[in-house]
Simulated scan of single mutants.
Amino acid sequence: MQPFEITRGTSPVILAFPHTGTHVPEMMLQQLNANGRLLADTDWHVDRLYEGLLPGATSVRATFHRYVIDANRDPEGISLYPGQNTTGLVPLTDFDGMPIWDEPSIPDDVAIAQRLEQYHAPYHRALAAEIERVRKLHGIAVLYDCHSIRSGIPYLFSGKLPDFNIGTDTGRSCAPEFERSTAELTAAAAADGYTSIANGRFKGGWTTRHYGRPETGVHAIQMELAQSTYMVEEAPPFALDMPKARRLRVHLKAILERIEAVALDLKHSQGAAR
């Protein structure tokens, strides 16, 4: 199976989906224990949530599961959040800190290197190529990294996660206009009962931090959604709640449209300044 899927568009906005894939090669699937085979840490249905919201947006989606290798982790294995509980490049545990591999089958360095070559690297080559294509087209590209996670995971964070979690590497991965406009819209969503935060527990993963270089015209922002906003329950069978999803999509559409508008404004202002 191809490790990624691409839909090319002409908008300055690129949607990335590193964690919606559920493909695990049969040999690796057999090496996962019963807990691992639940694939519980998938970003369930996130690609469906964003489908059709911004006509013309490019999308790049990893088809492999994060237990094969995590497309949103530093290929060198460097922790995104030093000193805090997290999962690695090839996770050994789930988000609750429970083992996911049969002990004799825990991936070693050779296996990790193979997975980097077969999955992680091709996905990021594809993503980087689309970012560069869009940047050449507009002089600006905005990478919007799409994620979701259970709203309560004591191993990773205390309390209940806000519904919208904006990550910009504390303002370093994009021009301030993108963070500000996204924060304004998620704050406005409070009228519908949603909560939001910028650069809280999730400040943006490796994708956001690696590609977000505003000085080069490439901006990146991560959106981590609490799965309670669109799922029946955050447990098997991980079913989509359609009424919740339709309500959430209204706000996601507004966010993407605002990001696109900000990108085009910046494009025109930069053009006028030349």
Results as ranks from 00 to 15, higher is better:
Met1Asn: 06
Pro3Lys: 11
Pro3Glu: 11
Phe4Gln: 04
Glu5Gln: 13
Ile6Arg: 00
Arg8Lys: 12
Arg8Cys: 04
Pro12Cys: 07
Ala16Lys: 09
His19Tyr: 12
Val24Glu: 14
Met27Leu: 13
Met27Arg: 15
Leu32Val: 07
Asn33Met: 05
Thr42Tyr: 05
Trp44Asn: 02
Gly52Trp: 10
Leu54Asp: 15
Gly56Ser: 14
Ala57Pro: 10
Ser59Thr: 15
Ala62Cys: 12
Ile69His: 10
Ile69Pro: 02
Ala71Thr: 12
Arg73Tyr: 10
Asp74Ile: 09
Pro75Phe: 11
Glu76Lys: 09
Gly77Cys: 12
Tyr81Asp: 11
Tyr81Ser: 15
Pro82Met: 15
Gly83Ser: 03
Gln84Pro: 04
Asn85Lys: 07
Asn85Gly: 02
Thr87Met: 12
Thr87Gly: 05
Gly88Glu: 14
Leu89Ser: 08
Leu89Asn: 05
Leu92Ser: 02
Thr93Gly: 03
Met98Tyr: 10
Met98Gly: 03
Pro99His: 04
Ile100Asn: 04
Ile100Glu: 05
Asp102Leu: 08
Pro104His: 08
Asp109Gln: 07
Val110Thr: 08
Val110Tyr: 05
Ala111Ser: 00
Ala113Thr: 10
Glu117Lys: 02
Glu117Asp: 11
His120Asn: 09
Pro122Gln: 14
His124Pro: 03
His124Ile: 02
Ala128Phe: 01
Ala128Ile: 01
Glu132Thr: 02
Lys136Gly: 01
Leu137Cys: 05
Ile140Thr: 00
Ala141Asn: 13
Leu143Lys: 03
Leu143Gln: 12
Asp145Cys: 03
Asp145Met: 02
Ile153Pro: 01
Pro154Asp: 05
Leu156Tyr: 12
Leu156Val: 12
Leu161Glu: 01
Pro162Asp: 13
Asp163Pro: 01
Phe164Thr: 04
Asn165Thr: 08
Ile166Met: 04
Gly171Arg: 09
Ser173Trp: 00
Ser173Ala: 00
Pro176Ile: 08
Thr182Glu: 14
Ala183Pro: 06
Leu185Glu: 03
Thr186Asn: 08
Ala188Trp: 13
Ala189Ile: 09
Ala189Val: 11
Ala189Trp: 11
Gly193Thr: 13
Gly193Ile: 15
Thr195His: 13
Ser196Cys: 09
Ser196Tyr: 11
Ala198Asn: 09
Asn199Phe: 02
Arg201Met: 04
Phe202Ala: 04
Gly204Glu: 05
Trp206Ile: 02
Trp206Ser: 00
Thr208Gly: 01
Thr208Asn: 00
His210Val: 00
His210Thr: 00
Gly212His: 00
Arg213Asp: 00
Val218Tyr: 02
Ile221Gly: 00
Gln222Val: 10
Gln222Asn: 10
Met223Val: 10
Glu224Cys: 03
Leu225Met: 14
Ser228Pro: 01
Thr229Gln: 08
Val232Gly: 09
Val232Ile: 14
Val232Glu: 15
Glu234Gln: 06
Glu234Ala: 04
Pro236Asn: 08
Pro237Ser: 12
Lys244Cys: 05
Lys244Gly: 01
Ala245Gln: 06
Arg247Thr: 14
Arg247Lys: 15
Leu248Cys: 02
Lys253Thr: 06
Ile255Leu: 09
Ile255Glu: 02
Ile255Ala: 01
Leu256Met: 07
Leu256Asn: 07
Arg258Asn: 11
Glu260Asp: 15
Val262His: 12
Ala263Gly: 06
Leu264Asp: 11
Asp265Trp: 14
Asp265Gln: 15
Gly271Ser: 13
Ala273Tyr: 10
